[in-house]
Computed example of a mutant assay.
Amino acid sequence: MSRTARLFQLMQSLRRHAPPVTARQLADDTGVSLRTLYRDIDSLRGLGAVIDGTAGYGYALTEDAALPPMMFEDEEIEAIVLGLREVQAVADPALAQSARNALAKLQARLPGTQAHRLQYAVLHAKRIVQPPVPTVDVRALRQATWDERTIQLDYIDAEDRASTRRVDPLSIVFLKDTHNLIGWCHLRQAYRNFRLDRMQNLTVTETSFRPRRVPMLRAALEELQHCWPEPLNIDAQMVELSES
């Protein structure tokens, strides 16, 4: 294995392992001695990689704009392109634009032959029927979810019944060709699913439910697991909660 290939493999190992990863583990991954591993760490740092840690403690990689060009397997590039093009096809306008920007940045960072493969990828994601356009500011909703801030909104359910809800937002999913929010509804005192195209007058309140979003989302998914007729892989798939 050439030294350049070994350095790329070391970068991948640093990305893959939960930090801090020991020098012995990295040396085993790259098939080198500890002495060579320490030299390779120093070489990556000299190339601009931000790697925290020392021998005897372990290492952690902080991604940095000065990193050397990324290397992907050909099918990894196809997977990335397909995923980002799917985002462009189904996401709200702001997120779709971010996906376009991400593809452009990735293409600029890849070596020439792989950049060409990214630009002319075999796989595409197209939607003949476009999803309903969300009627609220989805960027603000995403931020409230990250910040774990309760929101208030007016909602029209599937039976055309109007109500005002206070919701702890947990996750936004694209589900059954619509954008949906999974959250804890204060009115119903239960987990509920809200379609974004049926929301109006979104307000982000000052009420925080930090740091409960992750366990609440886990509980919501577990609740779904029990009520859905077929087994679900809840780590990779979300299904619709009943509206009420």
Rank of each mutant, 00 (worst) to 15 (best):
M1Y: 03
S2C: 05
S2P: 15
S2M: 09
T4I: 06
T4D: 15
A5S: 15
L7W: 00
F8D: 09
F8R: 03
Q12L: 13
L14D: 03
R15V: 08
P20M: 02
L26Y: 01
A27Q: 00
L34A: 09
D40A: 05
D42Y: 02
D42G: 10
S43L: 06
R45V: 12
R45S: 02
R45L: 10
A55H: 02
G56C: 06
G58A: 02
G58R: 00
Y59P: 09
E63H: 04
E63N: 01
D64R: 01
A65M: 08
A65T: 08
A65D: 10
P69C: 02
P69L: 01
F72I: 01
E75Q: 11
E76Q: 13
I77V: 13
E78H: 04
E78N: 05
V81F: 02
L84N: 05
L84Y: 06
E86Q: 12
V87Q: 07
A91L: 05
A91M: 05
P93H: 00
A96I: 04
S98K: 11
A99L: 09
L106S: 07
Q107E: 13
Q107M: 10
R109H: 14
A115I: 08
A115S: 14
Y120E: 06
H124E: 15
P131W: 01
V133D: 07
T135S: 13
V136A: 02
A140E: 13
R142L: 14
E148H: 06
I151S: 04
I156L: 14
A158G: 08
S163T: 14
T164C: 10
T164H: 07
R165M: 07
R165A: 12
R166E: 15
V167L: 04
P169M: 01
P169C: 03
I172K: 01
V173G: 07
F174N: 03
L181F: 06
L181M: 06
I182A: 03
W184S: 02
C185R: 00
C185K: 01
H186R: 10
Q189R: 05
D197L: 07
R198F: 07
Q200Y: 10
Q200F: 11
T203I: 10
E206A: 15
T207Y: 09
F209W: 14
P211V: 00
R212W: 12
R213N: 09
R218Y: 09
A219Y: 03
A220C: 11
A220W: 11
L221E: 04
E222A: 15
E222K: 08
E223G: 14
E223L: 14
L224K: 04
W228M: 08
P229G: 03
P231L: 02
P231T: 00
N233W: 03
I234M: 07
I234K: 00
D235V: 04
A236F: 03
Q237T: 15
Q237L: 12
L241V: 03
